[in-house]
């Protein structure tokens, strides 16, 4: 392991180490996604004062064993050795130590309905402004500082493993350097601007005969897209959708007859559209989008991985939080252009070569692979 400062041997942290402590209690806080260090300090102090005030002087202490490894942090009852808490290390947001107190801040899962409400009511709401639940566990120990340092070291060792798993050699860059690179990447926000402009959102009424299909092909918008909903990939000549003259290939469908399609699997969306067969009027809410997505990746140096992989011109994986995700890269999209050059007929090796040798600003145009196959006649449209 590359120079991970801390009181432990990194190998010991993989197996796990144990500290004795007293558990003082837990409390819950609401927090934005990535609060500043000052806000975190206030959160830690707030957690300590809440826990200390709960029971006052009559506070009962539970003697615990704190198990720390690069995988998880467990709290065991010192007497019975029963597991009281078990948190995956990656869900620990941060730790704080104040004198003989240690505060462990763990993220809680957001209720599914809350996350969906958020998407539906405020498309493109800044991620940082959303509130997330945080559970704060407070401990007391003479070794508080040592415990905090050991957890900090476990964070670093686990993060190095994560970087290696994503093809980044930690020896090539310090942790700070990598997070600096990430922070210099602006979120490519053309999508956000586009979705938040009400002129691009339309409500349409389509007329059709009873028993007639709508005459469309839909595809997924692709993992990594701002709004996970289906895209209109093709229209049947003379079908109700094409006849209306109100739809274009690339449009993202938000809802049909007041049923939201946002976040639903493709098959469910197809089922909803098939279910319209006996209707004579269909109401649709769409966002007009060009069929081609624009991507901008800023890569200051060849030593930084792009953070996505390509197979036969199609993006097949994306590193969460990497520079490519920030640039607008989406899984399942076919690369159409790189820096103004068409790569539609380019061999896979040449595309990989072009990407791996690109530094500075990398501009790409992409499109859902299924849409590309339909537009180029490689696939026969199955209209629904």
């Amino acid at each position: 392991f590359v120079d991970v400062p801390g009181p432990c041997e990194p190998e010991d942290l993989i197996d796990g180490i144990i500290f004795a402590a007293n558990y003082l209690g837990s409390t819950q806080l609401l927090s934005e996604r990535n609060p500043s260090k000052n806000i975190r300090m206030m959160q830690a102090q707030e957690a300590v004062s809440r826990v200390k005030n709960t029971d006052g002087d009559a506070q009962t202490l539970t003697e615990v064993d704190l198990f720390i490894s690069t995988q998880r942090i467990k709290v065991l009852n010192a007497d019975s050795q029963e597991t009281m808490m078990d948190n995956a290390l990656r869900t620990i947001s941060y730790i704080a130590d104040i004198g003989n107190i240690v505060v462990l801040m763990a993220r809680r899962r957001m209720p599914r309905t809350a996350s969906q409400d958020c998407i539906e009511t405020t498309p493109g709401a800044p991620e940082a402004k959303k509130q997330y639940k945080m559970i704060c566990h407070v401990f007391e120990s003479e070794d508080a500082q040592l415990i905090a340092q050991s957890i900090g070291q476990a964070f670093s060792v686990a993060y190095q493993e994560f970087l290696r798993a994503n093809g980044i050699n930690p020896e090539d860059l310090s942790q700070k350097e990598y997070s600096d690179i990430i922070n210099t990447q602006e979120m490519y926000n053309d999508d956000l601007i586009h979705f938040s402009n009400s002129e691009n959102c339309k409500e349409l009424q389509l007329e059709k005969s009873k028993g007639e299909i709508l005459g469309v092909v839909i595809v997924e918008s692709g993992w990594g897209s701002i709004l996970p909903t289906v895209i209109l990939a093709n229209m049947m000549n003379g079908g109700p959708a094409a006849r209306s003259g109100k739809l274009s290939i690339g449009d993202q469908i938000m809802s049909i007859n007041n049923t939201s399609l946002v976040g639903l699997p493709l098959a469910t969306c197809q089922g909803i559209i098939k279910g319209l067969k006996n209707q004579v009027q269909v109401k649709m809410n769409i966002v007009s989008c060009p069929p081609v997505t624009t991507v901008l990746i800023k890569r200051p140096d060849l030593k930084y991985q792009l953070g996505f992989s390509v197979q036969n011109g199609i993006i097949c994986s994306l590193m969460r939080g990497g520079i490519a995700e920030r640039g607008g890269v989406r899984v399942g999209h076919r690369i159409i252009e790189i820096n103004g050059q068409s790569v539609v007929a380019t061999a896979h090796e040449k595309i990989v070569q072009a990407l791996s040798n690109s530094v500075g600003e990398i501009h790409m145009k992409t499109m859902p692979a299924a849409m590309f196959r339909l537009l180029t006649g490689q696939e026969t449209p199955m209209y629904i």
Binding site: R33, N34, K37, R40, M41, A44, Q45, N87, A88, L89, R90, T91, I92, S93, Y94, I95, A96, D97, I98, G99, A106, R107, R108, R109, M110, R112, S115, Y132, Q145, A148, Q149, I151, G152, F155, S156, A158, Y159, F162, Q175, S179, I182, M319, R320, G321
Partner: peptide, 21 residues
């Protein structure tokens, strides 16, 4: 006494929805 904060570098790669209960 001084308050020290150590942030988990994995935090920025982690989806809040994926966090455990």
């Amino acid at each position: 006494s001084a308050l020290t904060i150590t942030i988990n570098p994995m935090e920025k790669h982690e989806q809040p929805q994926a966090a455990e209960e």
